[in-house]
Nucleic acid binder design. Structure first.
Lengths: 355, 355
DNA sequence: ATGAAAGCGCTAACAG
DNA sequence: CTGTTAGCGCTTTCAT
């Protein structure tokens, strides 16, 4: 070939890295093939409007031929934009946060961001290590889902300067941005709803976690105001089961309540799964819902409507929460100021047959 | 200070990057504070056994004081080890893969790896874009969960040179490594189990996805051999519902089967959720399980044992699958050769009351 | 519209 | 055990 001199032989680097994977294609390879400089390749891919149509086509062809996939680690390092968002959940095994995580993942993918996942467990112990591991990736944002973090964690997060969105809760002083709802209000609303249905002797069956306890508190307060604290010793009898809740703990909890506080006419559960447990135990004992007692769940999982009887529950728009969190972070990452940084997405009562 | 010359004033960089976040602490800052070089800080953190105890302590103290969190993008770029693993799932909304993903996340976190998540949806269309986005992060491994990928996707994956683990399935020619089980065998085993229980007129209620269809095929084949293809027109009547399966489609599917193929004495469902739908519909109609017909699920979700009647189902050890996948990838990433690259983790029948 | 040079923060390679 | 130097692959800045 006559023009081989224009294609400089790769200058052998002083030291060859040891156990690397087959050296992958880089911008330079693509640039060489397209007959342009590296930066032009970069622009063709990131800001095509800055490149002439002809060049654009040649670059794209070169990308196709080489199978080039940009190294986002390198790009992220230089541009200080990782296009990575970290999400922290207690555990993905609980179905409660799944809708939020799914919406988040989708909404972010649409904008070219990926999600990296961290499980904090229900304990604070490894939380610090987890946060460091995530912060180390220099994500463009961190989404905290249903988490009560330690004070150190808070400080570390603030110090990192990374945009943070807290979800699934409302707080007086959020770290940064927030999209959630009031658990106290839900408890109160459920109590009033049951009162309106003529129920006067409610009990609580609840997972032992902070947010559920706040719903319980809201319920108890409203019950007192409405004169529904019927049990001499306990006001509103409450049975706590370990978090995360299960169908099994719903059944055993029901048995325990039936024994310790007979005569209740309504159960408010901290999750739909728990409510399904109550329904199951009632059925196994030949009790009829809602005739013998009403049952209310929380979460409006997809199966709630199809249960028999159909479950009356509280709907949280996890999808909206995830999408809003994604929007917040993307706007921040793109330099736009987020006007509203605190959003109460509320909740709604879903009236069906069980109450 | 007399030795200020030894600490070179930071040479003002030729150009100050524009809209960066508050410049974070770097190895150099820590090194300066600890009175050592950058590489020593790096070693103190990554290979502490190569550093003398005294130095180690000073570095650690400096890290503490500065709040230094290593930039893993930079480290990954240089070392060609991202300590990132990508997982591809159809959707995280289906509870089936959650156990696998959770185990994967945990096992990886223990080894200092993080998981990045991609949802392929149940369609192949965006699969290529998704793969590129993930490959761009240069993960140390990719875990494919319950996915039948397009030929291009396969090629791209192979070309990337990244270790791949396929899960939830067995395949004749895996891309790379594999940990799964045989869906055909499960179908056959379930059929034989029902036959052993005296059932002779089975039907299939199944989500419309590739793996479920393979279980069905295994079932139908065994049924033919056992003379259980009782329906004149259909052999083993089959009702397909859209994937992902739901409780509601379990109920409606049951209704449809009851109408179109009355007289069946067993239902094999492609998921526990579907089975729960069958149980629910039966209960709503006053039918008794297993008296009127037996019900079998698939997956052994945590709630299966607590249902009424307790659900007989097929257990898949998602936890083991996730941990094995993690082990494969970590071993590869650490340069060790993986001896066994194909593992059949099998399955087990869980006999309970519904069949 | 395109290019040259520099450097993001870290660690591999080599040297003591 | 510790340090010097270079460079991973990309994009920012400045220049044309």
């Amino acid at each position: 070939m006559s023009d081989e001199a224009t294609i400089l032989p790769a200058k052998p680097s002083r030291r060859a890295p040891a156990d690397r994977r087959p050296a992958s294609v880089t911008v330079v390879d693509v640039a060489r093939l397209a007959g342009v400089s590296a930066i032009t390749v970069s622009r063709a891919l990131n800001t095509p409007e800055q490149v002439s149509p002809g060049t654009l086509e040649r670059v794209r062809e070169a990308v196709r031929q080489t199978g080039y996939v940009p190294n986002l680690l390198a790009g992220g390092l230089r541009s200080n934009k990782s296009r990575l968002v970290a999400a922290v959940v207690p555990t993905i095994a609980g179905p409660v946060f799944m809708e939020t995580i799914q919406a988040l993942t989708e909404a972010l993918a649409e904008k070219g961001y990926q999600l990296i996942l961290g499980q904090s467990g229900y304990t604070d112990s490894r939380e610090d290590a987890l946060l460091d591991a995530l912060i180390g990736r220099r994500p463009d944002g961190i989404v905290l889902t249903g988490i009560l973090h330690s004070p150190q964690g808070r400080r570390r997060l603030i110090a990192s300067g990374i945009p943070v969105v807290e979800t699934w809760d409302l707080s007086d002083d959020p770290i940064d941005m927030l999209v959630g709802f009031s658990h106290e209000e839900i408890g109160a609303a459920v109590c009033r709803f049951l009162h309106g249905r003529g129920r006067r002797r409610p009990v609580l069956l609840s997972g032992d976690d902070a947010r559920a306890r706040r719903r319980n508190a809201g319920f108890v307060k409203a019950a007192r105001e409405l004169g529904m604290d019927w049990d001499a010793h306990h006001g509103v009898p409450t049975r706590l089961v370990p978090a995360p809740t299960t169908l099994a703990s719903g059944r055993s909890g029901t048995s325990a309540l039936l024994q310790a506080h007979p005569g209740f006419d309504a159960v408010f559960c901290s999750s739909d799964l728990l409510a399904l447990g109550v329904l199951t135990e009632a059925q196994a004992r030949g009790l009829a819902v809602p005739r013998d007692f009403a049952v209310m769940g929380f979460g409006d999982q997809h199966y709630a409507a199809a249960l028999h009887p159909a479950l009356t529950t509280v709907r949280i728009d996890g999808n909206a929460m995830g999408r809003t969190a994604a929007r917040f972070i993307v706007e921040r990452a793109e330099g736009r100021a987020v006007e509203e940084r605190i959003v109460d997405i509320g909740f709604s009562m879903v009236e069906r047959d069980s109450a």
